[in-house]
Amino acid sequence: MSKSLTASKKIMKNYLSELLTEPEVDVESVQQSVVKQTTSRPLAHKENQSLENLLKTVNEPKEAKVAKEVPVTKDVAKEVTNGNSSDTGLLPTSSEESLTAAITLPQKGYRQGDFQAMFFEVAGLTIAVPLIELGGIHKVNKTSSLMGKPDWFKGVMLYRDEKINVVDTALWVMPEKCDQALKDSLNYQYIIMLNDSSWGLMAEHLVDTVVLSQDEVKWLDSSEKRPWLAGLVKEKMCALLDVSALIELLNKGSDINQK
C-alpha cells in the first residue's frame, strides 16, 4: 500500500518537475513547434473594446484613484511590517488609528447588515469575535515568557518570522476567578489573532462561525467601562469583542478592569 503510494508520488514528482523546469532550449521555441496555425485575424473589435476599457480605467476619476490603490497597499504593507498601522478603505482598521476612527466614525464594518462571528471557548466561557476583525488562527506552540509583564501576558510565540504576543484569555477576562485549580484545568489549543496586530488570545475550543443580524446582538456602543465589549450575542448571552478597543487596552498593558 505505502509502496504504491510512494510510486505514485514519484510519478507526480517527475511530471511536475518536467513541467516546471525550463529546458535548455527555450520554452518559447517549443511553443513554436506546436504552433497551431491561427489563420483568421484576431478579433479586431474585441481588441478595440478591451483597449477602450483600459483607456476608460485611466480616464475616469474613480478608476484613476484605483490605479493608485496598489501602491497605497504596498505602503501599508511596509508600515504593517514596521509595526505601525494604517488605514485604507479596503483594510479593517487597526490599533491606534482604529480607536480614533471608532470615535469619529462609530459605524464599524459589522455594524450594518448581517455579519459573521466566530465563537470560541475559554474556561467554560464563550466569546465571539467578528470575522472581519479576526487576523487568523494558530495552534498553540511553545511560548517564551517575558519577565516584568502582567500575569495575563503568557509570552511570545514565534510563527515564521512573526512574533505573536500571547494573551492568557482566562486571566485577562476573569482575573479574580482564576485560582490555581482553574489555571491547571485550562487546555489551551488555539491562538486567535486580533486583526492585524501581533496580539493573540488563547482559546480552548473553537465552537463555530455564525451569521448574525444586527438585532441578534445587544450593542453596547461607546461603553467607557468596558470598551473591549462591542455587545452581547443575545441567543448565547456571550460577549462580542470590540477588537480594536481590545488591542488598544493590550497595547497599554491594561487588563479587563483597565488597570
Binding site: 504593507a77 479596503l90 483594510l91 448581517d114 479576526l134
Partner: peptide, 22 residues
C-alpha cells in the same frame, strides 16, 4: 455576498502579512 466580502478582507490581510502585494 457578505461572506465573500469578509473572505476578501481576510485574503488581503494575509497577502499583506506575507508581502505578496509587494
Amino acid at each position: 455576498t457578505l461572506a465573500y466580502k469578509s473572505l476578501l478582507n481576510y485574503l488581503v490581510k494575509q497577502s499583506m502579512q506575507y508581502k505578496e502585494v509587494e
